[in-house]
């Protein structure tokens, strides 16, 4: 297993390099630059800025400079948030996004998994229909609708929870954004677990357990272990997406995460910020896909990586 993990990590390097290269030139193809404001800057100022940020060099030169810096772990300065480096922006934002995303993921797995399992055991009952209905609801109502409704009900009418803000990560401030983030994931996990549990409960080896008169919790444990496999492969990319923040949720609840940098970086042609977020997401995706593969082998003994 260890050689497999090492090999996968090594093979991630060219992938990452390719992503960086493509993203670097792609954002440069977009018209405009980081200093094109509505009122054009004076030519002299512009020239100085371009020199300071090394934008006066040729494109291949800039590329080599960027890759060189990246290899030293330097994401460079932000072009838009002038007083910050990209590393500083991530250092302050990433813990916020990861806390929210991690909690949302945990909630989604626990609640979605439970609902899906219960629904599978009571297939075609009222409980089952309720879970399937909730699943459809969670997937179809967009988060920019759910979030304000929750803010109005729990923040303004009942006044139980704050409407927004990070507040140093206070539990009360986390509740609403985590619910909004988790809702669609609960829906997906519940539906997937329900479908694969129904399949698992019909399988021959579960019939064997039933014929042996084993208690329900044993049957559930065995069925669930087989049924989580498809969910695990879904959760890899989903976790990468959740942990790197959500633009909508962070904007609505006024949270200082990294999610909004995706949009702001691209709109403001903040080249280093765009590159930083690309690298960040790519690393998360690569790491979580590796985790999924490792988890797969842990759950299913027939999967062996040599």
């Amino acid at each position: 297993m260890l050689p497999f993990i090492l090999r996968r990590l090594v093979s991630a390097i060219p992938t990452l390099f390719l992503i960086v290269t493509i993203a670097f030139f792609l954002i440069r193809v977009a018209p405009g630059g980081p200093f094109d404001l509505e009122q054009p800057l004076e030519a002299k100022v512009m020239e100085n800025l371009r020199r300071i940020y090394q934008l006066d060099r040729s494109l291949p030169e800039q590329y080599l400079l960027y890759v060189g810096a990246l290899l030293r772990g330097d994401f460079g300065p932000s072009f838009y948030f002038r007083d910050f480096t990209i590393a500083e922006l991530f250092a302050s934002g990433l813990p916020v996004s990861m806390t929210l995303g991690g909690l949302a993921l945990l909630v989604a797995v626990l609640i979605g998994g439970t609902l899906g399992t219960v629904a599978a055991f009571r297939q075609n009952s009222a409980v089952d229909y309720a879970v399937v209905g909730l699943g459809t609801f969670g997937l179809t109502i967009p988060n920019f609708v759910v979030a304000p409704v929750l803010q109005i009900v729990f923040g303004l009418m009942l006044a139980w929870l704050p409407v927004g803000g990070w507040n140093g990560g206070a539990v009360r401030s986390l509740v609403l954004p985590v619910i909004v983030l988790a809702l669609p994931q609960i829906a997906v996990v519940a539906r997937m677990i329900r479908a694969s549990m129904i399949e698992a409960l019909r399988s021959n080896h579960i019939r064997t357990l039933r014929s042996l008169g084993l208690p329900t919790h044993v049957v559930v444990r065995h069925a669930l272990r087989g049924a989580v496999l498809p969910v695990v492969s879904y959760l890899g990319p989903a976790a990468a997406a959740l942990l790197t923040g959500s633009v909508v949720v962070e904007s609505i609840f006024g949270l200082p995460g990294v999610g909004r940098y995706f949009v702001e970086g691209a709109l403001n042609r903040d080249y280093t910020l765009v590159m930083g977020t690309v690298v960040l997401v790519a690393v998360f995706v690569l790491v979580f896909n590796l985790l999924v593969d490792v988890l797969y082998a842990v759950i299913d003994p027939r999967v062996r990586y040599e």
Binding site: S203, T208, L209, L212, G213, D300
Partner: peptide
């Protein structure tokens, strides 16, 4: 009820099946 039936199944009355390849749980020793 299944719980009452489980007093007999697997202890007094047991069963083996046609499909030996799939009747055991592939994920457990």
């Amino acid at each position: 009820q299944p719980r009452a039936l489980n007093r007999y199944r697997g202890s007094k009355l047991t069963m083996i099946f046609q499909e030996p390849m799939t009747s055991l749980d592939p994920l457990y020793r």
